[in-house]
Design a binder for these strands. Structure first.
Length: 723
DNA sequence: TAAGTCACG
DNA sequence: ACGTACGTGACTTAT
């Protein structure tokens, strides 16, 4: 990658980066082909007067003090935006941030890679329309003399590390990493505008530029305005200090103002209008009825994590979800920082072996085809298969081309020799190209560990995603692929442990639907697929064949995805009519599930969104589309979203609860990965007994549903053997 | 940059 | 009659 300085997710511009890192919504919003209305004025219209600030959101008089002589440094083009170049100016600003109840904070850096990024400058805002930029490492030809980075950080460190001094940012996980790269562990990050937006409007873009446009009606300097794009782009440190200051001050200023719009919306979400009665056990004293993330002191480290939102998680609310996201953000920072140790020689050996086999398969394929061709080119494949070898067209792709995907090749393999070679080639190339060749390259040079990035505001269901590298799609389903996991190892004296929720989404379906038969299966601790097969095939569970159980498992998965008879038939390789009969039979036996699906669709159509058990809103923009297939797709998503989303809530609750206990009692145990329903740990061998006992207990206890939650642990020298 | 394919839960 | 299981990220080819 290039070495462009920028604050990763919070900066306008950088479509390529957003694409690459999976922030597709952001990339789209920034790219012009967007549903975000055009900015009222192009380019340079910036900070509005302070008088336009949303009034009355801050109770604290101190933060409304907006005079002060803080512009003692050189003055920027915008009134209220200062560039701090002298100690006198720095002292004034330090006094301001030390006195303020809440400070918006942002870093400008040398790199998009949060583990390697170094600070180029820091900006603050404590009052709408006012901000300061401290340039520290600008090196352009006309760069002025700047304050020394190390001394500035040393002066800021006590404030940054004081949990009682509250900070706010856009994508605070990134800035945590940046400060940590300079030896500072920031405490007191209480708000993140990106997460506010994600909780309030999950389906919309969450970049700061988008938020400023949507919520402030304001457009700012884009990164491309500042640094150019493509080959002409320059590092942030080369940007003219005056322009960089405008840009950086604007970021902090906008962050504070966006917060002033979104935070009240979150507060107003509690209690929900349609909130259920608070259960006795979590009933909240009246004195605590004002939700607050503002407690001056963090709770004692020995206590398990307790949200300050009253009643959450048993009492659902967006505010509680937001607080969960803020807490999760810090846990994710810890996981990313820990990284996972990769055994590079093992991967290299696997790559070599795969390379040999791929070469052999290529030769065999050429021999069968009678000519060499590119096995990775679907287009060339189509030509060879159809035009030269006369194979039939099995199905077409979305764009009308002749498909050569796995399903098609399996079918063709029944009658021709070439497709089987190709299937094996595909699978081995995938392993080599995506995993065995790549993972070691992404290891941090100093630690030998890979540090993934968890995107917390991408998946519309509330799940995380993982990128660069994606550690949530490491192979496991085939024996060959699974071997990649042998390279996920622990240092000497340590082992890997994996704790995963059992049947989490089906359990949630039982809870949400209240279906008696399904609830009973889980409450009684039955094998749920066997129980389903018993119902669908009309047999006592002990007489269910393994084939019947396999069918039931596919049916259960299909239900979670809102399947059709057609889809089930295709998956089982049976007639659509037979599949429809199974589905009918299922719904007869589990009428509560049927009712739940119908009600969920109706609710989605009526309000445009569905909710998780804990109150996360999952928006379905196309649920009332006039386009039939799109609407049908949204209906399936509506059925799936509460289950997938509730599972996401549960594991986030677990991550937060587990990290609190580890910090208090077991600092030697590191959480190193999350894979949707699984948490992975690295721990000293001596802690194995504790972990096997306590982690499943914690994971099962994070919520009280109508079914028991079950978590299972495995331990081994590597991730493969930890299962 | 889009399309096709395939890795995971 | 139509399309047909949810949610992600990464790689390769071809435009």
């Amino acid at each position: 990658m290039n070495s462009i300085a920028i604050n990763a997710q919070d900066t306008p511009g950088l479509r390529d980066f957003y694409e690459k890192f999976g922030f597709k919504g952001l990339a789209k919003a920034l790219g012009g082909d967007t549903d975000v209305p055009a900015a009222p004025a192009s380019g340079k219209q910036k900070a509005r007067p302070a008088s336009q600030a949303v009034p009355g959101l801050f109770d604290d008089p101190a933060s409304d003090v907006s005079e002060s002589g803080a512009d003692a440094g050189s003055r920027g083009a915008t009134p209220g935006y200062d560039t701090v170049l002298t100690w006198e100016a720095f002292d004034l600003w330090l006094a301001r941030i030390e006195a303020a109840d809440l400070v918006a904070l942002d870093t400008e850096t040398t790199s998009l890679d949060e583990m390697r990024a170094e600070i180029v400058g820091i900006s603050f805002s404590v009052t709408s329309g006012e901000a300061a930029y401290i340039p520290l490492r600008h090196a352009g030809p006309d760069a002025p003399a700047q304050l020394p980075l190390d001394e500035v950080l040393a002066r800021l460190k006590p404030w940054l590390e004081n949990p009682a001094r509250h900070k706010l940012g856009q994508h605070i996980k990134y800035d945590r990493h940046v400060f940590a790269n300079h030896g500072i562990e920031v405490q007191g990050y209480v708000h993140d505008t990106m997460l506010q937006s994600y909780v309030l409007e999950v389906h919309k873009p969450h970049g700061l530029g988008s938020l400023a446009e949507r919520h402030l009606g304001r457009s700012g300097i884009s990164y491309e305005d500042l640094c150019g794009k493509g080959a002409h782009q320059i590092p942030f440190a080369q940007v003219d200090v005056a322009k960089a200051a405008e840009y950086a001050c604007e970021d902090s200023d906008q962050t504070l103002d966006v917060h002033r719009v979104l935070w009240p919306q979150l507060q107003a979400s509690f209690p929900r209008a349609e909130a259920p009665a608070v259960p006795e056990a979590v009933a909240t004293p009246a004195s605590e009825s004002q939700p607050s993330l503002w407690a001056a002191e963090a709770p004692p480290a020995t206590a398990p994590w307790q949200p300050t939102t009253p009643g959450f998680p048993q009492l659902p609310s967006l505010l509680g979800i937001y607080e969960l996201e803020i807490a999760s953000s810090e846990v994710l920072y810890r996981i990313e920082r820990n990284g996972v140790l990769i055994d590079a020689p093992t991967l290299a050996a696997q790559s070599h072996e795969l390379g040999q086999r791929i070469l052999k398969l290529e030769e065999e394929a050429y021999a069968i085809a009678g000519q060499p061709f590119n096995l990775s080119s679907p287009k060339q494949l189509g030509e060879i298969f159809l035009d030269k070898l006369g194979m039939p067209v099995v199905k077409k792709t979305a764009t009308g081309a002749r498909s050569t995907d796995e399903e098609v090749l399996e079918k063709l393999a029944e009658d021709y020799p070439l497709p089987a070679k190709l299937l094996e080639h595909r699978s081995l190339s995938k392993l080599k190209g995506t995993y065995t060749d790549k993972l070691a390259q992404l290891a941090h040079p100093r630690t030998g560990r890979v540090h993934t990035h968890y995107a917390q505001a991408v998946a519309v269901t509330g799940r995380l995603s993982s990128n660069d590298p994606n550690l949530q799609n490491i192979p496991i389903r085939t024996p060959e692929g699974r071997r990649v996991r042998e390279a996920f190892v622990a240092p000497p004296g340590c082992v890997i442990a994996s704790a995963d929720y059992s049947q989490i989404e089906l359990r949630i379906m039982a809870h949400l639907s209240g279906d008696e038969a399904l609830l009973h299966a889980f409450t009684a601790g039955l094998d749920v697929h066997r129980a389903t097969a018993g119902e669908v095939f009309g047999l006592p569970p002990e007489q269910v064949s393994s084939e019947q159980r396999r069918y039931a498992k596919v049916i259960n998965f299909g239900l979670i995805y809102g399947m059709s008879a057609f889809g089930l038939a295709k998956n089982l390789g049976i007639e659509t009519k037979a599949a429809a009969a199974y589905i009918d039979r299922y719904f007869q036996r589990y009428p509560g599930v049927k009712r739940y699906m119908d009600e969920t669709k109706a609710q989605a159509k009526a309000q445009g969104y569905v909710e998780t058990v804990f109150g996360r809103r999952l928006v379905l923009p196309e649920i009332n589309s006039p386009n039939g297939p799109r609407r049908a797709g949204a209906e399936r998503a509506a059925i799936n979203a509460p289950m997938q989303g509730t599972a996401a809530d549960l594991i986030k609750l677990s991550m937060v609860a587990v990290q609190r206990v580890l910090d208090a009692e077991k600092p030697a145990i590191k959480m190193i990965m999350q894979v949707h329903d699984e948490l992975v740990f690295e721990l000293p061998e001596g802690e194995v007994d504790w972990l096997k006992r306590e982690i499943p207990r914690l994971m099962a206890a994070v919520a009280d549903l109508k079914v028991p939650l079950l978590a299972e642990v495995g331990v081994g020298p590597n991730w493969d053997q930890a299962h």
